[in-house]
Computed example of a mutant assay.
Amino acid sequence: MGSRAFKIGAKFVFLALQGMAAQAGGLCSADAVWLRGEFGTVRFSVDVADDDAERARGLMYVDSMPSSRGMLFAYDDAKPVAFWMKNTLIPLDMIFADAAGVVTKVHTRAIPGDLTPIPSEDPAQFVLEINGGLAAQMGIKPGAEMRHPIIADGAWPCE
């Protein structure tokens, strides 16, 4: 097989594998959250805040964040939660999800430093924070499904 034929063949295999991963919705891993909905499927690399100290610090003092990154806040049970932007330096979108990982609310462009509480309204067990304006840009809205290994009985479970 010539060099050009090998490159074309390798590219085809790569595109086929990439397509299968997209169809499967991606692999579950502790450092990634997947969202799917009418907009398609998106992946964010995340840090998980699953204890009181990590949740209290959140994304405070972070002065920039790549658009593909975020933070997933996880609680033991679904309950009403509220966030504020104390010591937060960048605008954030907050994507609230229930115990099954179904998005119930999207709060866009939370204002850096604002102490006004941002409530979940409905009980939430998971909250994904991403760069402000990104949720609207991507079309993420209530009804979308979140996928991560910490979402035990999710609407879109890890296999």
Rank of each mutant, 00 (worst) to 15 (best):
Gln23Thr: 07
Gln23Trp: 13
Gly25Glu: 04
Gly25Ser: 03
Gly26Arg: 00
Gly26Asp: 05
Gly26Ile: 04
Leu27Pro: 10
Leu27Val: 14
Cys28Met: 05
Cys28Ala: 09
Cys28Phe: 06
Ser29Arg: 15
Ser29Val: 00
Ser29Thr: 08
Ser29Asn: 13
Ser29Cys: 07
Ala32Pro: 02
Val33Asn: 01
Leu35Asn: 04
Leu35Ile: 13
Leu35Phe: 10
Arg36Met: 08
Gly37Phe: 00
Gly37Val: 03
Glu38Asp: 14
Glu38Gly: 14
Phe39Tyr: 08
Phe39Cys: 13
Phe39Lys: 01
Gly40Pro: 00
Val42Thr: 13
Val42Glu: 13
Val42Cys: 03
Ser45Gly: 11
Val46Lys: 12
Val46Ala: 02
Asp47Pro: 00
Asp47Ser: 15
Val48Leu: 05
Val48Ile: 15
Val48Gln: 05
Ala49Asn: 08
Asp50Gly: 08
Asp50Asn: 15
Asp51Ser: 08
Asp51Glu: 11
Asp51Pro: 12
Ala53Ser: 13
Glu54Met: 11
Arg55Gln: 12
Arg55Phe: 02
Arg57His: 13
Arg57Thr: 14
Arg57Val: 11
Gly58Cys: 07
Gly58Glu: 01
Gly58Asp: 03
Gly58Ser: 07
Leu59Pro: 14
Leu59His: 12
Leu59Ala: 10
Leu59Val: 08
Leu59Gln: 09
Met60Lys: 11
Met60Ser: 15
Met60Gln: 15
